[in-house]
């Protein structure tokens, strides 16, 4: 059993863009219809379709859309940086929003690793299986992504140290 609303939520979080998420899901479901017999024989048709959504996102050919999202994300992330200087106590909603914008600056695989780890709650071996790489490469993507997002442990330690000094 699969659910379209759940699939759309996953696609929006994965792609970081409502329209791109919609395009990806539409493309995948249209193709899924043509090979539904095979999909329905899978242990979990829903997992199969989710894997198709992931693959579609990673190989999305209309890259202008992703670039566009990426560029907008960078601009918004810059704005967040400027705002951070004047906000002493940003509330968690604003911070989550800022982090969402910063996520748009990541490469597709790095973003996918974070979504699969923290949204889909898969372990590194499962993610490696989905992405066709080693668990070590998954950790490498995650490490770079967290560093870019300034969420890596070392960055946070430095920030705290700077705040204390």
């Amino acid at each position: 059993m699969a659910r379209l609303p759940s699939l759309l939520r996953y696609a929006v979080v994965l792609t970081g863009d409502r329209e791109l998420g919609q395009d990806v899901v539409q493309e995948v479901l249209a193709r899924a219809q043509l090979k539904w017999r095979r999909i329905s024989e899978a242990d979990s048709p829903e997992a199969y379709v989710r894997r198709m959504v992931l693959n579609e996102y990673l190989s999305w050919r209309r890259s202008w859309a992703v670039r566009n999202v990426h560029a907008v994300g960078e601009r918004l992330a810059d704005l967040d940086d400027q705002r951070r200087g004047v906000q002493d106590h940003a509330d968690s909603v604003v911070e989550a929003d800022a982090l969402w914008n910063r996520l748009a600056t990541l490469g597709r695989k790095q973003r996918a690793v974070l979504v699969l780890r923290y949204y889909e709650q898969l372990d590194d071996n499962q993610i490696a299986d989905l992405l066709g790489c080693t668990p070590a490469t998954v950790r490498s993507h995650a490490s770079r992504a967290l560093k870019t997002l300034r969420l890596s442990p070392e960055f946070r330690t430095r920030i705290h140290a700077q705040e204390k000094s």
Partner: peptide
């Protein structure tokens, strides 16, 4: 933090 960030947009889905 990441789960909160994903949560900010996960329901901003297109019309099924």
């Amino acid at each position: 933090q990441l789960r909160e960030a994903f949560g900010t947009r996960e329901n901003d889905t297109p019309d099924p």
